[in-house]
Computed example of a mutant assay.
Amino acid sequence: MKNIPLIAFLVLLTSSAFSQHIRKVKITEVEEYIKNSDHPLVVNCWATWCAPCIEEIPYFMQTVKKYSDQKVELLLVSLDFTSSYPTKIQELVKRKNFEATFFWLNETNADYFCPKIDPKWDGTLPSTLFVNNNTGYRQFFGRPMTDRQVELEVKKLVGERK
């Protein structure tokens, strides 16, 4: 009987440790996050309804984990509809065991927010920005990426030779 509060606490702690918080942001907050990053950053724009997006996220997670000693961070920016925030996004993240920093972009005008990520971005999903403010490296891809492409790009991001 004495152990019930302890067990309840441990269950609560375990469930909260595995839940991912999805922060509601404006594009200016994403810009600031990128600008103020002091480590290599992979910014992937995706949505729950985008099959190529869901397919490539594990490639990013695996590669970022491989370069964790170089503090590479994966930022997943959801462009889901308002009706999907936060429940539908949270459910997919949990079901797929996605691990990253999560933002939900609370914007509807792609003509406004796309160029703030990259001038070449036309709103296509998935799209990914690789940026390292310490080295000046910045590369944008407005298309899905393969596991090999992600690996190659993260190597460049951290300054490794091929």
Rank of each mutant, 00 (worst) to 15 (best):
I89Q: 11
E153Y: 04
L6Q: 08
T48M: 05
V154F: 07
R95K: 15
A100N: 15
C53N: 10
D80Y: 09
F60Y: 14
F103S: 07
S68V: 12
L152G: 03
V25M: 07
P86E: 08
D111A: 15
H21E: 13
R95Y: 10
S83F: 13
T135S: 11
T28Y: 07
V158W: 06
A47F: 02
N109T: 10
N3I: 14
N44E: 08
T128D: 01
Q70Y: 14
K24S: 01
F81W: 13
N97G: 08
L12D: 09
K35N: 05
E31G: 00
V30Q: 02
V25G: 03
P40F: 04
L79K: 06
K65E: 12
R138M: 00
I89A: 11
V131H: 01
K162W: 09
T135G: 03
K71W: 12
F81S: 13
Y85S: 09
E151L: 15
R23Q: 10
K155G: 10
L92R: 12
E160Q: 13
N132H: 03
A110N: 03
L10Y: 02
F102E: 09
K120G: 04
E56H: 14
Q149G: 01
E56P: 12
P58M: 11
L10A: 09
Y137N: 00
M145F: 06
P119S: 11
E55I: 08
F130T: 00
E107N: 09
K116M: 15
M1H: 15
F60L: 11
A110T: 04
Q20H: 04
S84E: 11
L10T: 01
S15E: 10
L125W: 02
N109D: 15
D147C: 10
T101P: 03
I7H: 05
N133P: 02
L152I: 08
I7F: 09
E91S: 12
S83T: 14
Y67F: 14
T87S: 12
S68C: 08
K88C: 06
Q149C: 03
T108C: 05
D147P: 04
V11L: 11
R143Y: 01
P144Q: 09
V42Q: 02
L74I: 14
T63Q: 15
C53T: 07
N133Q: 10
L10G: 03
L76M: 15
C114N: 12
R95M: 13
K162D: 11
K2T: 07
F140P: 00
N3W: 13
F130I: 00
W104T: 06
V11R: 02
A47R: 01
L79E: 07
N133I: 05
L13W: 05
H21A: 11
Q90V: 12
F102L: 13
L157Y: 05
E160N: 10
P5E: 07
